[in-house]
């Protein structure tokens, strides 16, 4: 039966639609290698990837939240708080593994608190996670007294400085997380329900989906990845900084959006997100190599995000005879 076969993706438009952002990334890399001969060295590429890893880890959880139709502004602060608490435990003589697990647990817990208020308090995610962002940042400052906590523990250093074969540990963690998230979103029942909730919450509810549970789950997952990013960053810096992770949530959201995930939920993928994270990372790297001031880097980042998303919109909406054209303008009909 022909219906059983997945839809063929032969048309060039569909190909572009699926791989458009990957093309943007490759074009950027091509341009970068023309502008700077240091770009395509293995040393530099490894360096970029290591830098991308932390944002990519955060963005994995962010993708899940945004797919469900929410947003999580608290990830940067949660990262800082988990880092501080973990560093504190190790500084007090605690076991590194216990500390790491505690960091993951704390992140997950804070995320679940977000989810609880979003789901059962029926508050807008923007407000709830904004409150958590302030709360967790404040708690970090209280806990650290505003001073960094140094971490000197050889085993713990692995997360930021170790490697698996030739692959740096943060990158390995990133790859494993993305594989797990990919399988979770595409193959598991819960993953499917996240798309359903993001696509149409009322329909999901009326189909017996436990929407509140799904919401708690997605924010908990985002908290978990924030905790993981906290481990890697603390390890990399040999210390927990009270201001660590400031505005990281914006980079994570940018990566998700660049990756083609719809801010209104229901459509998107982690494969897109990792491409988005690399676009942001490589942009910063190229500007560094070209000795552009970091002030201008933010300006450039803003422009690139806008242009890339605009391009994506054109790819999705454009073209006569595209069914999708009928979808988008429905709101403005008549």
């Amino acid at each position: 039966m022909s219906l059983l076969k997945p839809q063929a993706v032969s048309a060039p438009r569909q190909w572009i639609r699926r791989y458009g952002m990957l093309l943007v990334l490759l074009a950027m890399m091509l341009l970068a290698s023309l502008l700077s001969d240091r770009f395509l060295t293995s040393n530099n590429l490894m360096n970029v990837t290591r830098q991308v890893a932390i944002n990519a880890i955060l963005a994995a959880g962010m993708t899940v939240v945004i797919l469900s139709g929410g947003i999580d502004l608290s990830v940067g602060s949660v990262l800082a708080l988990t880092g501080a608490v973990g560093a504190g435990m190790i500084a007090a003589g605690g076991n590194w593994l216990v500390a790491a697990l505690a960091m993951l647990g704390l992140g997950t817990l804070l995320g679940a608190v977000n989810g609880f208020f979003v789901a059962y308090g029926q508050l807008p995610p923007f407000i709830v996670t904004l409150a958590m962002m302030a709360f967790a940042r404040g708690a970090t400052l209280v806990y650290t007294n505003g001073r960094p906590i140094t971490v000197l523990n050889n085993a713990f250093q692995w997360f930021g400085h170790g490697s698996v074969g030739p692959v740096p540990a943060p990158v390995a963690i990133m790859i494993i997380l993305y594989l797990a998230f990919y399988i979770f979103l595409n193959r598991t029942t819960l993953g499917r329900l996240i798309y359903a909730v993001g696509g149409n919450e009322r329909a999901a509810r009326m189909s017996g989906v436990r929407v509140n549970f799904i919401k708690v789950l997605v924010y908990a997952m985002s908290g978990f990845t924030a905790g993981f990013a906290g481990i890697v960053l603390t390890s990399r810096l040999f210390s927990a900084q009270p201001t660590a992770g400031t505005s990281y949530e914006l980079d994570a959201i940018a990566a998700v959006i660049l990756g083609g995930t719809s801010l209104s939920g229901g459509r998107g993928s982690v494969t897109g997100t990792i491409i988005g994270a690399f676009i942001i990372g490589i942009l910063g790297n190229v500007l560094n190599l070209l000795n552009v001031s970091s002030f201008y880097q933010d300006v450039a980042k803003g422009v690139v995000i806008l242009v890339a998303v605009l391009l994506d919109r054109l790819i999705h909406a454009g073209g006569k005879g595209s069914l999708r054209k009928g979808v988008a303008p429905r709101a403005q009909q008549a």
């Binding site: 359903a196 329909a203 009326m206 229901g266």
Partner: peptide, 13 residues
């Protein structure tokens, strides 16, 4: 459309 279907998802889903 409001409560029966997730319009973005496929027939299968």
């Amino acid at each position: 459309k409001e409560e029966g279907l997730v319009l973005l998802l496929s027939v299968v889903a």
